[in-house]
Write a protein that binds this DNA or RNA. Structure first.
Length: 426
RNA sequence: GGUGAGGUGGCAGAGUGGUCGAAUGCGGCGGUCUCGAAAACCGUUGAACCUUUACGGGUUCCGUGAGUUCGAAUCUCACCCUCACCGCCA
């Protein structure tokens, strides 16, 4: 969310910058609504001031023993009028704030112009596809063939877009979680956090999922609890309504959580395999920084995520997203895309974004800068999406006989060098 | 699930219908003293919004929401959260 005062004072500049990402600011609507809102506030407050003053007068008179029933009757009428007025004022004010809350962040100056993913810019690449003298298979064939991935039973137990992992498939998932957390905490300086997997709506507002993207989320019945779509939500909101110590920034957190997404609106996309599931696991990296260090910390966080792929020997490229392809609250985003031989394509496995003060303003996250307190910057990115890493390992390390070679770095975690066909459970 | 206690400023903690944004202490900031520091002393110290060229003025905020009243931190109701004990449970 943008700062109200700055935003209003520089409406045209904001409109120009938002146009870069394809957002048209409803300038007229905004100006009109704001004018009506302010007029209403001014009038209501003027009446309130009168009411307060006259009430004080009543108190004084009553102390002197004077009968004040006439004044009280007049004040009662005034109170009714104020009640009605303030109802209108509140309505205008919340309408205005809702409008403000649905305006996305402005792109950073280092972000290239563009309309879609086609305009994203490759900034780095690593590795080359392993040579294969056979036709590479997709994970949705490899997994079931090996008996480690099961869609039929997942559909029975729950429904579409869910998966069951068996044996070394399940263990590979667990190995990846442990491997990533170990690297980030022991070598990249992150503190491990295990947050709740459900959050309240205030948290979802803080990180920007609400009010605009409720349909992407799962909400629990008869409560204000929602399943988290990413650990970004609980972890960023850890410091909601807090003032952090500026000398101790940046804070760096690594959190493993499952993530739940309704995937409304993506019917027909990635229907095969486990690329797009209602439930997936992720190790998320989150930072709280000072404004002057946030872009350097974004680069650092992106490098930390890339490091996991390097250690696993998985080819990837890092894309700087163009202005038109960025998420709602982000000022700058890098997507890391891993190579998937089964589909002969690069697939997003991490998205690393600097939100600047956009989330901090919504979530009221400040830090003490000398005497003054100002809004912190928040950064987050996957480090990495576990399910898609699992896919990448199967597809990149598959062998001609359909078995999977286990990358060196994972062997201590998996206690195996090759994943072979699992004996069926009788 | 039951019973009881409680939620007030950065923290601790008073305040049970009017001049309370709120005593007091701690912390923070500024100053006096000092070569410097500590101590002591003096002063100062919340946020959002509206208005004003500015100085300033005003409104709201004592867990959240509704209500009573001319007037609510203070009274009523609902909800949320915290703590203690009991029951149940991984």
């Amino acid at each position: 969310m943008h700062d109200l005062g700055t935003f209003r004072a520089n409406l045209d500049a904001y409109a120009e910058r938002l146009a870069r990402r394809g957002t048209t600011l409803p300038l007229e609507q905004f100006r009109d609504l704001d004018a009506r809102r302010r007029a209403a506030i001014t009038e209501t407050e003027k009446l309130r001031a009168q009411q307060n003053e006259q009430s004080r007068e009543v108190a004084k008179l009553r102390k002197e023993g004077v009968d004040t029933s006439a004044q009280q009757a007049a004040l009662r009428a005034m109170g009714d009028r104020i009640g009605e007025l303030s109802k209108q004022t509140d309505a205008l004010d919340s309408e205005f704030r809702e409008l403000l809350a649905t305006i996305p962040n402005t792109p950073h100056e280092s972000v290239p112009d563009g309309k879609s993913a086609d305009d994203n810019v490759e900034v780095r690449a690593f590795g080359a596809p392993r040579p294969m003298d056979f036709e590479p298979k997709s994970h949705w064939d490899l997994g079931p063939d090996l008996g480690i991935l099961d869609f039929e039973r997942a559909a029975k137990v729950t429904g579409a877009r869910f998966a069951v992992y068996w044996g070394l498939g399940a263990k590979l998932e667990r190995a990846l979680i442990n491997f990533m957390l170990d690297v980030h905490t022991a070598e990249h300086g992150y503190t491990e956090v295990l947050p709740p997997f459900m959050v309240n709506s205030a948290s979802l507002f803080g990180t920007g999922q609400l009010p605009k993207f409720a349909e992407d989320l799962f909400k629990l019945e008869n409560s204000d609890y929602w399943l988290i779509p990413t650990a970004e939500v609980p972890v960023t909101n850890l410091h909601r309504d807090e003032t952090l110590d500026g000398d101790e920034l940046p804070y760096r957190y690594a959190a493993y959580t499952p993530c739940f997404r309704s995937e409304a609106g993506s019917h027909g996309r990635d229907v095969r395999g486990i690329i797009r599931q209602h439930q997936f696991q992720k190790v998320e990296l989150v930072k709280f920084t000072r404004p002057d260090q946030s872009f350097a910390e974004l680069d650092g966080l992106t490098a930390d995520a890339e490091d996991i792929l390097r250690r696993l020997g998985l080819p990837f490229r890092t894309m700087l997203l163009c202005s038109g392809d960025m998420g709602f609250g982000s000022a700058k985003t890098y997507d890391i895309e891993v190579w998937l031989p089964g589909q002969q394509t690069f697939k997003e496995i991490s998205s690393c974004s600097n939100y600047e003060a956009f989330q901090a303003r919504r979530a009221n996250i400040r830090f003490k800068n000398g005497k003054k307190s100002e809004y912190a910057h928040t950064i987050n990115g996957s480090g990495l999406a576990i399910g898609r890493t699992w896919v990448a390992i199967l597809e990149n390390y598959q062998q001609a006989d359909g078995s999977i070679l286990v990358p060196e770095a994972l062997r201590p975690y998996l206690n195996a060098e090759v994943i072979t066909k699992r004996a069926e459970i009788k």
